[in-house]
């Protein structure tokens, strides 16, 4: 799969736009809308349910709204991640169920001992450009991110909702008219974290499970209990007058201590296609 992504990126490099771009199109202020497709692999240990290492993968679809002015950049990113997970040491294990049929025979069903996981994410960020350099720009800002990790399986490892505030540092290098590189680094400093309590169950009177989970198990946490790190490198290729393609690699790491330590790390590979909207004047 990684080879496919690399081949795709190489193809993008080889493409040359037929249109003669107008440079001012790409100068701020500009508004871009992007569609993101990606895959990721993750590893996690959730000692609240087991000492085992779990591995999994996601397929990702995202929408990006990006506004860039002379010195500012706003970004809204909506992602839907759908995947599966399994204990790393036992990827092919099954659980066996027996049922007695009407005729007295026993029917056996085997079910893979793995789970599915849904993870919607919303990120809203702002960056301010530092200095006046032309090709190499540094910008700093902050982002609020909400990520729900909703596993469903025999063992629900990693059930969590995190709303985090994280400072951001971005480096942008305009290598040529069509080629741009970006790197972004962020770390969570404050979070509103929802995890199941010590006993691992969510039931509360007069409430559905989802409401009970959020209402009774959410607390503010800072660096002493919640640590998160996100690093991203991205290559952008301007394909034509209004279209840009981007390929990125993202590394996410999250650790949370209550009620038992949870650690997760994810490698994500994304392709984005951005459309530049015409300027009003």
């Amino acid at each position: 799969m990684k080879a496919t992504w690399i081949a795709l990126c190489c193809c993008l490099l080889g493409v040359s736009g037929h249109a003669q771009e107008k440079e001012e199109f790409f100068k701020p202020p500009k508004f871009q809308l992007g569609l993101q497709l990606g895959i990721s692999t993750f590893s996690m240990v959730d000692k609240a349910v087991s000492p085992l290492l779990y591995k999994g993968n996601f397929r990702r679809v995202g929408l990006q709204f990006l506004y860039t002015s002379e010195r500012s950049r706003f970004e809204l990113n909506l992602q839907g991640n759908l995947g599966s997970y399994y204990p790393s040491a036992f990827p092919n294990d099954h659980v066996y169920f027996k049922e007695l049929e009407e005729d007295g025979s026993v029917k056996e069903t085997k079910v893979p001992a793995r789970g599915s996981v849904l993870s919607p994410t919303v990120k809203l960020g702002y960056w301010h450009t530092l200095g006046n350099a032309d090709k190499l720009q540094f910008s700093a800002g902050a982002a609020i991110t909400e990520q729900l990790f909703y596993p469903q399986g025999f063992v629900s490892a990693g059930l969590m909702n995190v709303v985090s505030l994280s400072p951001q540092l971005r480096v942008t290098y305009a290598a040529a008219a069509r080629h741009q590189f970006e790197a972004n680094l962020s770390t969570a400093v404050l979070g509103l974290v929802t995890r199941p309590p010590y006993h691992g169950t969510l039931t509360q009177p007069n409430q559905n499970l989802e409401g009970a989970f959020l209402k009774h198990n959410t607390s503010w946490q800072s660096l002493n209990k919640l640590q998160g790190l996100q690093a991203e490198v991205q290559y952008q290729y301007r394909m034509g007058l209004r279209t840009t393609a981007a390929a990125s690699y993202q590394l996410n790491w999250l650790r949370e201590k209550d009620p038992k330590p949870f650690t997760m790390a994810e490698s994500a590979y994304n392709l984005s296609f951005l459309y530049l909207f015409p300027k009003s004047n």
Binding site: K2, S43, M44, V45, F181, Y249, L251, S267
Partner: peptide
């Protein structure tokens, strides 16, 4: 530069960030 970026990506270093029990 593209090669360096995707060299980093290929490392898929998430495993090294987890202390496997």
């Amino acid at each position: 530069i593209v090669g360096i970026c995707f060299g980093v990506a290929l490392c898929s270093c998430e495993d090294s960030l987890i202390n496997e029990p």
